[in-house]
Amino acid sequence: MPPSVLKCPDVGHKTFENSLRNITVGNADTPQQISKFVRAHDCVNDEMNLQYAAGELQRLDLTAAVAMFKDRAHFVLSTFERNRQLFQHTACCIYQFQTVTSSQSTFVFGLFITDGNRNLIDYCIDTQQAHKRRPVLQRLMRAVCTSSSIARRFSH
């Protein structure tokens, strides 16, 4: 699936908004957004139309995702495992949004996981400075995810 682009909403963090004009729905690796699609278990053809055994492409994608999100690998793997049945027939997309601080360190707002239809599955936010991270991540989730999945997740 080729990536698509959404306009970045106002998130209440001007530096981040000025650095990320658009959100990529699909694979991305920029200083502001890292995202990775993990193909469904039943996806057996790659982008070159080469055929693989069921689950092999998903396993390759998940291995790459764990390496990309190494600081949150446990969350990615446990969420994937809890939703393994869902990911038999739909893709998974993992999104992480961040900004580079004035001291050149990376400040991660958080990470969220959707299914192939952009339904929010789960999210995580570091507890340190969560009051700064949560509002930004929630606005980003609202831009990417379906409104019904957001309502379901936040009403619990």
Rank of each mutant, 00 (worst) to 15 (best):
G12A: 11
T30G: 08
V25G: 04
G55C: 02
K36N: 15
P31F: 11
V38A: 01
N27D: 11
T30A: 04
I34T: 14
A40K: 04
L57N: 05
R21G: 06
R39C: 04
A54C: 01
N18L: 11
V44G: 00
V25K: 06
F16H: 09
N27M: 00
L50I: 02
Q33R: 06
E56Y: 01
P31L: 08
T15R: 08
N18C: 05
N49I: 12
E47L: 12
V38M: 00
Q51L: 01
E56R: 00
P31R: 10
G26C: 07
D46Q: 08
N49F: 15
L57M: 10
A53E: 12
Q32W: 05
H13C: 15
E56M: 03
H41M: 01
R21D: 11
K36F: 08
Q58I: 02
F16L: 14
H13W: 14
T24C: 07
G12N: 10
Y52W: 14
V25S: 07
K14G: 04
I34L: 15
T24A: 04
E56A: 05
L57G: 06
A53N: 06
T30C: 06
L57K: 03
R39T: 02
C43S: 10
H41Q: 03
A40L: 00
P31N: 11
R21Q: 13
N18G: 08
